[in-house]
């Protein structure tokens, strides 16, 4: 016999082959149940949904919300919440767009599980737009509801975003004192005094 094909070597080789095969084939023989979506609210491909709806997705097995990620079109800032072992809900800070088809790509551990779509209803009132307007008001004119403000020494209005225009009504008080008073008022309303600019109104058409 060839010295390489000695019985001993053959046995060792065979054992090696068996071990190797086992190592390769054993994992292949274990077939995990793939993760799938069992149910959704609203239903997949449904229409006429409310712009306020928080979709719920039920999977076929236990998952952790932190393992799920969502890519959506149009883009939306979804927050993923765990409802129970198999179910998550998707919440959003803004109302959804009216009359819009949302396409959500659901991923589990960065692997695409499913594409889920639904559409919102059309309407004459646009809550999301109104929400955005209010956000702008809050950001640019946070004290608009408190203006115009009149005190004995000055009056104050918004002349531009984050800009308060002050008219001095008491000539005995200096502009710098008035601005200090205005800043104190802004602080009283829970904002940083430097969050606004302060302008003293000038007399009109003065030459």
């Amino acid at each position: 016999m060839n010295k390489y094909l000695s019985r001993k070597n053959l046995i060792i080789f065979s054992i090696g082959i068996i071990l190797l095969g086992t190592l390769i084939l054993l994992p292949m023989s274990y077939r995990p149940i793939p993760i799938t979506i069992e149910a959704t609210t609203p239903l997949d491909k449904s229409t006429q949904n409310s712009v306020m709806i928080n979709p719920q997705i039920q999977f076929n097995k236990s998952i952790l919300a932190s393992d799920i990620s969502i890519a959506s079109s149009p883009d939306e800032n979804w927050t993923i919440n765990q409802v129970d072992k198999q179910t998550i809900s998707l919440s959003h800070k803004k109302y959804l767009y009216l009359n819009t088809k949302y396409v959500l790509t659901i991923k589990y551990l960065d692997q695409v599980v499913s594409i889920y779509t639904f559409s919102t209803a059309p309407g004459q009132t646009d809550p999301r737009f109104l929400q955005q307007v209010q956000d702008k008001m809050d950001a640019q004119y946070p004290l608009m509801g408190e203006t115009p403000r009149f005190t004995q020494g000055y009056s104050l209005v918004y002349s531009a975003p984050l800009t308060l225009e002050i008219t001095i009504l008491d000539s005995k008080i200096t502009p710098s004192d008035i601005i200090l008073q205005a800043k104190a008022w802004v602080t009283q309303n829970g904002l940083a005094p430097d969050s606004h600019q302060y302008k003293i109104a000038q007399p009109a058409t003065k030459k």
């Binding site: 309407g123 999301r128 737009f129």
Partner: peptide, 14 residues
Amino acid sequence: IMGVDECGDKTVGH
């Protein structure tokens, strides 16, 4: 009128 720039099916303004 608000929202003219974004006007469409998805945004109807106010």
